[in-house]
Design a binder for these strands. Sequence first.
RNA 1: GGCGACGUAGCCAAGUGGAAAGGCAGCGGUCUGCAAAACCGCGAUCACGGGUUCAAAUCCCGUCGUCGCCUCCA
Length: 488
Amino acid sequence: MAIIVYNYLTRRKEEFKPIHEGYVGIYVCGPTIYDHAHIGHAKAYVSFDTIVRYLRFRGYQVRYVQNITDVGHLTDDADEGEDKIVKRAQKDRVEPMELVETYMRSYFEDMDALNVVRPNISPRPSCHITEQIGLIELLLERGHAYEVNGSVYFDVSSWPEYGKLSGRRLEEQEEGVRVAINPEKKHPADFALWKRAERGHLLRWPSPWGWGYPGWHIECSVMATKYLGQPFDIHGGGLENIFPHNECEIAQIEAATGKPFCNYWLLNNMVTVNGVKMGKSLGNAIPIKEMLTRYRPMTLRFFILSSHYRSPTDFSEAALDAADRGLERLTSAVSLVRARLQTAPDGDLDAEWAARLEDYRARFVEAMDDDFNTPRAIAALFDLSREVNALLNSGQPVSRATLEAIHDLYQSLGGQALGLIFDEPVRGDLVSSRDTLVDGLMRILIDLRHQARQARDWAAADAIRDRLAELGIVLEDGPEGTRWRPSR
RNA sequence: GGCGACGUAGCCAAGUGGAAAGGCAGCGGUCUGCAAAACCGCGAUCACGGGUUCAAAUCCCGUCGUCGCCUCCA
């Protein structure tokens, strides 16, 4: 069976066929690094992490390239404003690259917490100035760009295909929109490939047109093709950048080389907060770090995966709380399997369960093959968990091999493919539920309570349970004895 | 003004021509000394109005509503 993806280039679902059998090259527009990452970044990079994970799960060798923008992203009009990084660096009185270093570390810290696998290559445009200048020179040679006073602009009128990804036509753009007039440009939609930098500018490089720095869009065209070839398989990004950013990426590289840029465009939808647009300019952008003070990282990841990547995601407390409880349901099923494994009798893999597990795997794969339908894939895990819980509570003996097969399936589908970690929650100073000291102390309390219950001293037994509850520990009495876990 | 997406149970969310997945919350029940967890059971004229079809949540037209892009944003 083939993987089906929704391709924004054709606006329909298509069978995914890699250029080279068994190998996938994917480029995803990365963050511009001048502040902490927010939940919009979380949605984008969890989504593409899951796509990359799933492609690997399906046996592809994937090269995942995601840029770290450290120069050239302007604050305004794609060619009129200041460089975002320079602006923030001046405000904070640090070197631009110092600022980038600080927030890049923060970014990877957040992504690590969300169990996002790091890209194979995280290229930075400041390290690819030569290549960017090379592409600009090619565009000038071919008549698709022009130089004015040390800046170089792409000439959109020279490239009729401009607009093919976003479905925009130039003549439709202007009505009612604030357009800053740049007298250097021939057409208002022309965009900067290279910007002249005045003396004293903090980030600038020598070029055939004097000192300056690259425009924002050029980096992605250059770095994607440098590391993945041209054409390559998949270009990912956020829907809000389909125009102008992605459109410009395509135009400049295809105009310069005469070859298609890439075969599939996969774009994730956006994030709202309590139903309203989230934007840095609106001041309601929630940093991931703030979110993680309120929710476990896996809750955030699970929440993002519980809707489709092409649907908008609305962050609300009610929805996140519900996701937290839902994840808990999966986690507790897995930890029940793990607990049972410690005392499981040897024995063969139950044939009926082997077949059942294969059905669930197939259902999961079918869902994910359909444009990475994570909500449907997760539904399969919930159904699996219901059956697993029923099995483990049935009182029937379950062989080690069967339990291992169940556990392997959770690890494979939920862990490897979806990137979920099913460890029990860790709270406060309870460093780890695997901590031997804590575990030993808990054993003592559970034994004491067991003795009290044997003596039908319910008051004493309940006092132990209640006081542990105050400390955030839940006791559960089951046929296999009493288990404890941290409460939510 | 132009372009586009969406509106499915209290909430989140799949499904996009042929008996309405899943989760959270809620209500019964089983289990339990009591709980917790788990399991079983219970809930949808799919925004509204027309139309096409043997058949529509799913296609078409219209209305209302929400959101997004066209300006920085993932």
